[in-house]
């Protein structure tokens, strides 16, 4: 129970008139810690800190020992052992110092609080006046105020100079800047469809209902240059549906882009370009694992859910003389995410 009288703090001004605000009672009285008054406690804490620092020394020795004695080796087990022992010893070495030092500061270092005055950030009026005067003098000495044309030319030169750096620097960054490449892939008339990643050409007779085939153009794996660039655009997903389930595909009137229930669609999402690879056999839905755009393969790959707007472009396919699936042509529209001039010629 406090013996403090709450009324005593309310300073009475004049005749019973109370102030608007309470007064700050001032800093707490400094209370000594146990370790300040009891040498035994201080001694104990000293021993604790000593122990922690010793632990750190042992940790460091442990790291060096483990470095030589526990190489990562050849198996996941030996790698894990090496990593765990090194990591835990390093942590001991560091935490021993960190916790020990902080413990010492908390308990044994003086904890007397000090008060320092603050000053306004702004400089004094006098300083400001001097500063302004200095600048004026400087301007005067420069003699520029009388030479307007010179200043203008100088500023223009300064403003233009960065171009000398930026143009060569930026100019090459985009290599050939030929953004029309977005609109074409390496699929062309007669390119065989091959399995990804093996590159085996696919026979139409091998494709059964309920299958899903991840497809690359035949010959992609043999490309010398830009293999990944081409692959990034050319990947295709091939499925065979029961022709009764196939509601529609993207073939224009009078043409057939599928073959006996087999349809091929670009695997690059029309949202932001993830591979839309997740095919649900029963619902014929294709799901993108990145942002969950869902496309209906049975219905021309139209979007049924998620952030994509456009259907996945269809690759027109047919079979060649040997029964292999081949492309009729390239895609009839750019694959992948939308860009500004996507639909232009």
């Amino acid at each position: 129970m406090s013996t403090h009288d709450p009324h005593s703090d309310v300073v009475v001004h004049g005749e019973g008139e109370l102030p608007d605000r309470f007064d700050d009672p001032g800093l707490h009285e400094h209370k000594p810690r146990q370790a300040d008054v009891d040498p035994k406690v201080a001694k104990r804490v000293e021993r604790q800190v000593l122990f922690l620092f010793t632990l750190s020394i042992l940790g460091t020795i442990g790291v060096v020992w483990a470095y030589f004695a526990l190489p990562p080796g050849e198996t996941p087990d030996s790698m894990r052992t090496s990593n765990v022992v090194l990591g835990v010893c390093l942590a001991l070495s560091l935490l021993g110092i960190g916790i020990g030092g902080n413990h010492y500061i908390k308990v044994l270092m003086s904890n007397r609080e000090y008060v320092e005055e603050r000053h306004e950030q702004r400089s004094s009026d006098e300083t400001r006046e001097i500063a302004v005067q200095m600048l004026k003098d400087g301007a005067q000495d420069s003699g520029l105020s009388r030479r307007g044309a010179l200043v203008g030319a100088g500023l223009t030169a300064l403003a233009l100079f960065p171009l000398a750096i930026v143009v060569p620097l930026i100019g090459n960054v985009g290599e050939d800047w030929n953004v029309r490449k977005f609109k074409h892939t390496m699929w062309k008339k007669g390119t065989r469809l091959a399995t990804d990643p093996q590159g085996r050409p696919i026979k139409a007779s091998d494709v059964t209902i309920g299958d899903v085939w991840h497809v690359i153009p035949d010959g992609l794996n043999e490309l010398e240059h830009g293999k990944l660039d081409e692959k990034a655009k050319a990947i295709v997903l091939l499925v065979r549906l029961d022709p009764r389930d196939l509601k529609s595909d993207q073939s224009p009137a009078g043409e057939t882009w599928g073959y006996d229930g087999i349809v091929a669609y670009s695997k690059v999402c029309t949202h932001v370009g993830c591979p839309v690879a997740l095919y649900e056999q029963q619902t014929h839905h294709l799901l993108c694992p990145c942002h969950q755009s869902t496309f209906d393969v049975a219905d021309a790959c139209k979007v049924v859910f998620g952030p994509a707007k456009r259907p996945l472009p269809q690759l027109p396919i047919t079979v060649d003389d040997e029964g292999y699936l081949v492309a009729q042509s390239d895609f009839h529209e750019p694959v992948g995410p939308s860009f500004w001039e996507r639909a232009t010629k």
Binding site: V84, V85, G87, V88, L90, A91, L94, L95, I97, G98
Partner: peptide, 14 residues
């Protein structure tokens, strides 16, 4: 500094 580095080392080790 030693505390922060130590905790991160512990995480990385385990």
């Amino acid at each position: 500094f030693f505390v922060v580095f130590g905790v991160i080392a512990l995480m990385a080790g385990t």
